[in-house]
Amino acid sequence: MDMNSINWLAVLVAGISAFVLGGVWYSPLLFGKAWMSENNLTEEDVKKGNATKIYGWAFVLSLIMAANLAMFLADTPAECTGNCAQKTDVTWGTIAGFLAGIWGFCAIATVALFEQKTARYIFINGGYALLALTLMGAIIGVWR
């Protein structure tokens, strides 16, 4: 894979999009209260967390997910030396992101089942992974 075929600005924006989506997804506007309830957390418990560590690592991990997805979507052939056609566009990027999100959803669900978590927990966290990766794929695909 030619690392020059990756649009690193798109990776950055895709990573930021997942980070921002997480902020909205886990806010009281959407699933924040349900997520806290499923994890037996209070607002005081959440405030006790090390925000720098939590948000810092969440941002880094979002960037890693975006970079990994971009590597899967980097479809410029190695033998290409000129103006070669690329297969990845917004449609394929979105589909690929969704399919990667299925992996994430299933991984979260598997761990949650062994932790004896509820279906609600699985759909809150797995739904975030599915939507975040779909959004990242769309951004990477449209920005080819």
Rank of each mutant, 00 (worst) to 15 (best):
V111N: 14
E44W: 03
P77D: 02
F105S: 10
L73T: 08
V111L: 07
A96D: 00
V90W: 06
Q116F: 04
K87H: 10
L63C: 05
L135T: 10
G97S: 03
F123L: 08
I102V: 15
L41Q: 14
K48P: 01
M136T: 00
A138E: 01
N40G: 07
W103M: 11
A109C: 03
W57F: 13
A138N: 09
F123H: 07
I102A: 08
N40L: 02
V60A: 00
N50Y: 02
W103Y: 08
T134S: 10
Y121P: 09
L41W: 07
F123N: 12
D89A: 06
M136E: 02
L61C: 06
F72H: 13
A74C: 02
M71G: 12
N68S: 15
I95P: 09
T94H: 03
T88Q: 05
W103H: 07
M136S: 12
M71D: 06
L69A: 02
G49L: 01
Y121N: 15
L135C: 07
E115S: 15
A100Q: 12
L99H: 03
A132F: 05
G137A: 09
L63D: 01
T134D: 00
A107C: 06
T81R: 11
A58P: 04
L69W: 03
K47F: 05
G97H: 08
A107S: 14
W92G: 11
Y121M: 08
I124D: 08
L99D: 04
T81E: 08
G126F: 05
G137C: 05
N83Q: 12
G82S: 10
L130Y: 01
M136F: 03
I102H: 13
C106Y: 06
T81Y: 00
E115I: 03
N83A: 10
F114L: 11
L69K: 07
C84K: 08
T118L: 09
E43L: 01
A66Y: 03
V142S: 12
L61R: 12
T52I: 11
I139G: 14
C84I: 03
W57Q: 14
Y128T: 01
I140A: 09
I139E: 10
W92S: 15
A138C: 08
A70I: 06
T134L: 09
W143T: 12
C80Q: 06
Y128M: 09
E115N: 14
A132S: 13
D75C: 04
